[in-house]
């Protein structure tokens, strides 16, 4: 009783068949991802638009939030604790540190939740899941645009004037984007595998806060030269240092630039490969 067996010659058609429930091929995956690029821009744009619609002053919050964040840090660390030793323009130093650090760590937290917070969409439609961390990083970068206005405003008010070095903000932000993207892919996979990480991340971020030189220059507090140089291992520190050099002429060591380039290239590649190895499992949680 042969029921539903393959008929003669049926398998002749199967060359171009896709095998399901397996790790996809990188080439196919990248093509799928690229064909959905509009998703990664349009979805976060609309998400941002609806985010503040039920508040009193709506979109102004996108400008006020970064301004307040910076002000709080400035009052505590600049005016009360006076950690501004040896920095000419502490306001500029702090505004770059605080705002960039905030956006970068937000992409980490978002990445960690990327799979779970989109569970509905993942279960409804089949699409390359790597699109979700991309979307959340692009969303954070879009949300960062008003913060950038605040940042430039603060720099201008404290006496910094545009120079040719300011153009290096562009490669700096590109590098920042790719580092965030790679990290977000890694985080998404990690957060999917171990849900407890959602609790751990806040402590990691607090630790990173001090290890990234957001408030101070490591050389102010650490005597050993090696100790100061070790900060360059932290990609967040590299981004902040590079941007501070570009915008206000702070010191920039060559290893910071080299590591910045290495991280921008390596993190996204490693992140994507690590992320897609669980591609076929993300919907099954």
């Amino acid at each position: 009783m042969a029921i539903n067996e393959l008929a003669e010659g049926d398998l002749a058609h199967t060359d171009d068949f896709i095998e399901l429930g397996q790790v996809p091929r990188l080439g196919d995956y990248l093509r799928d991802l690229w064909s959905r690029r509009e998703f990664a821009v349009i979805v976060p744009y609309h998400d941002l638009r609806v985010q503040k619609v039920n508040t009193l002053i709506g979109q102004f919050w996108h400008f006020l939030n970064p301004a307040f964040t910076f002000l709080v840090y400035y009052v505590i660390f600049g005016l009360i604790l006076e950690v501004d030793r040896g920095i000419d323009n502490y306001v500029g130093f702090l505004v770059i540190g605080v705002l960039l650090f905030t956006v970068m760590t937000r992409t980490m937290t978002d990445g960690l939740n990327a799979i779970e917070s989109n569970a509905g969409l993942i279960r409804s439609v089949d699409f390359p899941r790597a699109l979700l961390p991309v979307t959340s990083v692009i969303g954070q970068m879009m949300a960062f645009a008003p913060a950038l206005v605040v940042l430039f405003g603060a720099l201008f008010l404290t006496g910094e004037r545009p120079s040719l070095e300011w153009f290096f903000v562009v490669p700096g932000m590109v590098s920042c984007f790719f580092i965030c993207l790679g990290t977000a892919w890694l985080m998404a996979r990690a957060g999917f595998a171990v849900r407890d990480l959602g609790q751990v991340i806040q402590h990691v971020i607090r630790l990173l806060f001090y290890a990234s030189g957001v408030l101070f220059q490591p050389s102010q507090f650490i005597d050993s030269e090696l100790g100061v140089r070790l900060f360059a291992i932290n990609p967040l520190y590299d981004v902040l240092t590079f941007m501070r050099w570009a915008l206000m002429g702070e010191e920039l060591l060559p290893e910071v630039v080299i590591l910045l380039i290495v991280y921008s290239l390596v993190l996204p590649v490693v992140g994507l490969i690590v992320f897609m190895r669980a591609e076929h499992r993300y919907a099954g949680s």
């Binding site: 058609h13 068949f17 399901l20 429930g21 089949d126 499992r281």
Partner: peptide, 17 residues
Amino acid sequence: AAMTGLLPVDAGRIRVK
């Protein structure tokens, strides 16, 4: 769910056009 690629395959295979 497995046919949609939503669940990983433990053994055997699904091939689709």
